[in-house]
Simulated scan of single mutants.
Amino acid sequence: MSIRVDGATMPADLYLPESGEGPGMVVYQEIFGVTDYISSRARDLAALGYVVLVPHLYHRLGDEVVQEGGEGLPRAMELMNEFDWEQGVKDGVAALAAVRARDEVRGPAGVIGFCFGGGMAFNVAAAAKADRAAPDALVSYYGSALPNLLELAPEVTSPSLHHFGTADDYIPMDKVEEIEAAVTAGNDDVSFLTYEGAGHAFDNPSPMFHHEAASSQAWVATESFLLEKLPV
Results as ranks from 00 to 15, higher is better:
E30D: 09
G197Q: 01
G24Q: 10
P23G: 00
V65K: 02
H163A: 02
P205M: 06
F209T: 07
Y28Q: 07
A145W: 11
S40L: 11
D13E: 14
A42N: 11
K129F: 07
F83R: 00
H200S: 09
V65T: 05
E151P: 14
L227M: 03
H56Y: 11
I179D: 01
Y170E: 12
A181V: 12
D168T: 11
P108F: 00
A97N: 03
V99R: 09
S140Y: 10
Y15W: 04
E86F: 11
P23Y: 03
S39Q: 13
R60H: 08
Q29K: 06
V139H: 00
A137N: 02
K90N: 06
S19F: 06
S158C: 05
H162R: 08
V52C: 09
Y37E: 02
A47T: 02
S19D: 00
E78F: 02
H210P: 04
A46D: 07
M1N: 04
A218T: 09
D168A: 09
A133P: 01
E18G: 07
A145N: 05
V105N: 05
A167V: 09
Y37N: 02
A153P: 08
N148T: 13
G24P: 10
R41T: 12
G107L: 00
V34T: 13
A12W: 07
M208L: 15
I38F: 11
M208K: 14
G72K: 09
P11Q: 00
D91A: 00
A12N: 02
V220W: 05
G117R: 07
R102T: 12
I3M: 14
A201F: 07
E86S: 08
S19R: 00
Y37H: 15
V139L: 05
F202K: 08
Q217W: 01
I3E: 14
L152M: 13
D84W: 06
I112D: 01
F32L: 01
R4W: 13
E68V: 10
H163W: 11
A167W: 05
N81G: 14
P74H: 13
E223G: 03
R100C: 05
G7T: 10
K90L: 06
N204I: 11
G113K: 03
A221K: 10
V26M: 15
F114H: 03
A97T: 13
